[in-house]
Design a protein around this nucleic acid. Structure first.
Lengths: 350, 350
DNA sequence: TTGAAAGCGCTAACAC
DNA sequence: GTGTTAGCGCTTTCAA
């Protein structure tokens, strides 16, 4: 008595549209999902009925049968128990890194009609809620960006058996796909550049050494410098912030006053290093050459602008999206890793 | 033949759990949804069965009957057709504004088990896809943050009949709920402070005048200054960036060289204004007092630190979440607006 | 307090 | 090429 009223106010269903168009639900469904084998004339009628009724498919009903949501999550996670305020969001979103990532991902998702939702997992409570959300099948898969090393998210994702792709090699080996840049190759570019400039006393400021990327950049740099005849390359560890870059540089200058070249594991620290060098009365690059990593926005802000190692982030992000889609299409496809080559961007600091 | 296998690998359903627990689906459902009237002993058995099977409710099936997803979207939108890269994301996320907003929203959502997803609508194509996504019932409602005036999103939201709350009064009147700060009251605080300091030649740098907030700050400031005997307050329009703040200040100094007080419609522009004042050889606040608006991170970065008008963003955000939840619970509840009072934060610039 | 059964709106075999 | 029909997994009356 309350059903079978095509034009009533409750949101229209396939049933309603079918009635209006004078066809069956199945046919309407076919038209909506763009399946061939439907008479063009009928297609027209159906489309008109959809228009007239203002029909929109019910995602829940659709997902229930297709087991797909056509959406994926981009999860930004970090290990530390930090209050949910400025630092984390500021740090992660500020960097063009993030914009380039999203851009690259959207580039492959949008054309395929897949929506991306952004989720934050800034502490364990948030992560627990997140995993629950994901397991309930709200999205088809996830791309995870970790801001720090000890992040348990990759492990949780694997455990939950969700289609997932990481934006970097996981700390401990995990059966999970990831995309990364060839960190040591990037470090070698920096080493070669420094050697080419004729630097004789070279040092490096590394990132947190519990992160694979940091380790790779450090050892890659050392090995390359060794090939150039530099047996020992002093290093100080930073944590990717400008402040620690500044402090590390001061320490390095103390230990190696006649330093004439530094490779810094990211641009933000490189910015701090340049500041510390200025403070100590040294000129960049005349007295000390500085090379950063990432090619983030601060590279251009620095005086002088930073020579740095650039990662093809858009391409990497696009690849992550493609890998994820592949895993979603075939959940049994084996974990894959794709590594991209970084390039040297020469500006003024080296 | 392929069903009724409680311990098989396909994701367990209520059916499986019920079989393991030796009860009916309905009972398991009751336990899971925390409904009373279930024998404690049976509750225990069911919980054990859930544990054993690793059961997780299927969100699609659940949504199909409850018509709820228990998630809401925070949509960050902007009008201009901009490429999806640094500027937009950088601008919007960098500001502590954003972190404080998310924090306030989470504060009310998380305890209620509601998940927040973040979505970006940086141009018309993205917005169209977004609206489609929302209409399909992927989320129960949306909180919309507009970065600019001509943003069509509020209109689209209203049209789509989705539960929604805006983070500011819409440009043109719309039957939609919003939370805002008392802009003109804030401007008056600035005026009073400037008058109290004995400023005689006062001017202002406004935000884009197509935005209600900008207009309110401008007229509020003028009216308050009028009450203090300042019949005419020159103003120059900026667009909320540091650069335009700098330029506006230069123009103002040209027109009113003996200026001794400025109210700037946001902190970023105030930062630019202070820079321009320094460049012109003027001291802040001795020669010219400067008051900003927002109390964003740059307020502390400025030399001298900015005296500014602070909005209670966390409270505002929490209220948005509460309003949205109310609309979701009762779709017929009328649009509501809640206005918060800003406060004066005295630092060094005025 | 518990179980049986009727759908929620849709897709996908399978017939015609 | 189109219609019929059987569920997808869950919640929720309604009886018992």
């Amino acid at each position: 008595m309350t059903k079978d009223r095509p034009a009533s106010s409750p949101t229209p269903t396939l049933e309603h549209v079918a009635k209006v168009a004078g066809v069956s639900r199945a046919t309407v469904s076919r038209v909506i999902n763009g399946i061939r084998n439907v008479d063009p004339a009928i297609q027209e009628v159906v489309r008109a009925a959809v228009e007239q009724t203002g029909y929109v498919p019910n995602q829940a009903a659709r997902s229930l049968v297709t087991r797909r949501t056509n959406s994926v999550a981009l999860v930004v996670s970090e290990a530390e128990h930090r209050a949910f305020d400025d630092p984390f969001l500021g740090r992660i979103f500020t960097d063009p890194f993030f914009g380039r990532l999203v851009s690259g991902i959207m580039g492959v998702l949008r054309p395929r009609g897949v929506t991306m939702v952004l989720m934050l997992a800034e502490n364990d409570a948030a992560r627990a809620q997140l995993i629950g959300y994901l397991k309930q099948g709200h999205v088809d898969g996830v791309i995870a960006v970790s801001a720090s090393a000890a992040d348990p998210l990759p492990g949780l994702l694997t455990e939950a058996g969700l289609p997932a792709v990481l934006s970097q090699r996981p700390v401990s080996p995990l059966p999970i796909s990831y995309v990364d840049a060839a960190q040591s190759a990037g470090a070698r570019l920096a080493a070669d550049r420094l050697a080419e400039r004729g630097c004789r006393r070279v040092a490096t400021i590394s990132g947190p050494l519990d992160m694979p990327a940091s380790q790779d950049r450090l050892t890659g740099f050392r090995e390359a410098m060794a090939r150039h005849g530099h047996a020992h390359v002093p290093s100080v560890e930073g944590n990717f912030t400008q402040e620690t870059g500044e402090r590390a540089m001061r320490q390095l200058l103390n230990e190696v006053p006649d330093l004439d070249g530094v490779f810094v594991a990211n641009d933000l620290m490189a910015l701090g290093a340049v500041l510390a060098l200025h403070d100590s009365g040294r000129r960049v690059p005349q007295d000390v050459a500085v090379i950063g990593f990432d090619d983030s926005n601060v590279a251009m802000v620095s005086r002088p602008p930073l020579t740095t190692i650039r990662q093809p982030l858009e391409d990497m992000a696009a690849e992550m999206a493609r890998l994820l889609l592949a895993h979603i299409d075939d959940p049994d496809s084996p974990p894959t890793s794709v590594i991209f080559e970084p390039t040297l961007v020469v500006r003024k600091s080296a």
